[in-house]
């Protein structure tokens, strides 16, 4: 399959800000079954893009806008080819547990086996596992499939109930959430079972009529787990599927905070509003036009602005 991806992020400020610095995890990977054919980042105001590869092999772009601005728009366009892969096995040999316990696997996957940041075990998670009677099965593959389905069954997909970086307990208590929450929960459980597991940030070509729950036109998140005999297998608990031809991988990390699609810092006392739009279309399909920005984090009312005027500002007032 060929996909054309367009991802626009727009920040609006209610007062001019300056010295914005921003970093992006938005470039689709070019490895495994996936090939990146074209990739382009455009910013407004214009900025010089810099890039590097982080320690997990993700491409990171960053740039800064020194002058005063009221709006910052980042637009990426990518063309990606994803090959169909043979389906992973239904199950693997139970000796896979021993392989996972070996010191080589443990050493190589140190980071993907330990709780980190948003993937901390909790009381609420233990209760959830007890309630669903979820324990390790005979082999890792079967265990993970069961886990994938259980999360899908137990949670309702609802936006705006959680934040992108909420701890898992928020979703666990509400039994509602979105892809990041489900991925984080699955990571904690898989790692607790001794299965190396990593967070995947990316895009999904959505098929609502095919049973997908994911909101169309948004970034997506799922997980990959290391299954001896099958390699890294992608599980998408949001949609109860294994990652396949419709999943476009962008970055891997220990959790969301390792690979947020965009993160930035600016100077100036202003509130910001974030609007995001994503389209993933089969490459031959006609592209949609620009009327699709969705405000995901509106500007707070003026009064809510945290009062932290700079020393300069304070001194100015005393004239």
């Amino acid at each position: 399959m060929f996909y054309s991806i367009r991802h626009v992020t727009r920040y609006r400020y209610d007062a001019p800000v300056r010295e914005s610095v921003m970093q992006l995890y938005k470039q689709p990977k070019s490895d495994g079954a996936q090939r990146l054919q074209a990739f382009q980042v455009t910013t407004h105001p214009r900025a010089t893009l810099q890039a590097y590869t982080d320690y997990l092999g993700n491409a990171v772009y960053h740039f800064d806008v020194p002058g005063a601005h009221n709006e910052l728009v980042v637009e990426i366009e990518a063309a990606v080819e994803v090959h169909a892969q043979p389906a992973p096995p239904e199950w693997v040999d139970s000796s896979a547990w021993q392989v996972l316990g070996s010191s080589d696997v443990q050493a190589e996957n140190f980071d993907m086996l330990r709780p980190h940041g948003l993937t901390q075990p909790s009381e609420a998670l233990r209760d959830f596992l007890d309630e669903r009677n979820l324990i390790k099965a005979d082999d890792p593959m079967t265990s993970l499939r069961r886990l994938n389905r259980t999360i899908f069954d137990a949670f309702t997909y609802v936006q705006d109930e959680t934040e992108v970086d909420s701890p898992i307990d928020v979703a666990l208590k509400k039994r509602k959430g979105v892809c990041q929450d489900f991925a984080h929960i699955m990571l904690v459980v898989a790692r607790g079972w001794g299965i190396p597991a990593r967070y995947v940030s990316g895009y999904l070509y959505t098929k609502r009529d095919g049973g997908d729950r994911s909101a169309p036109d948004a970034t997506h998140a799922w997980i990959e787990a290391l299954v001896p005999g099958a390699g890294w297998v992608g599980f998408d608990p949001t949609n109860n599927v294994l990652a396949g031809e419709r999943h476009i991988r962008v970055a891997i990390g220990r959790d969301y905070n390792d690979v947020p699609p965009a993160r930035g810092v600016f100077k100036g006392p202003a509130n910001s509003e974030l609007a995001v739009a994503v389209t993933v279309t089969p490459a031959q399909a006609p592209r949609r036009r620009d009327d699709f920005l969705r405000v995901v984090r509106p500007m707070p009312k003026r009064a809510e602005r945290p009062a932290a005027p700079s020393v300069h500002a304070q001194q100015q007032q005393q004239q």
């Binding site: 010295e19 610095v21 590097y52 960053h62 993160r263 930035g264 810092v265």
Partner: peptide, 22 residues
């Protein structure tokens, strides 16, 4: 560097880690 490390730091220099890496 609030971009690379603690996001709530008001003491640092955003982007310093990038300049350093480069």
């Amino acid at each position: 560097d609030p971009l690379a490390f603690r996001h709530d730091s008001a003491l640092g220099v955003p982007g310093l880690m990038n300049a350093y890496r480069a």
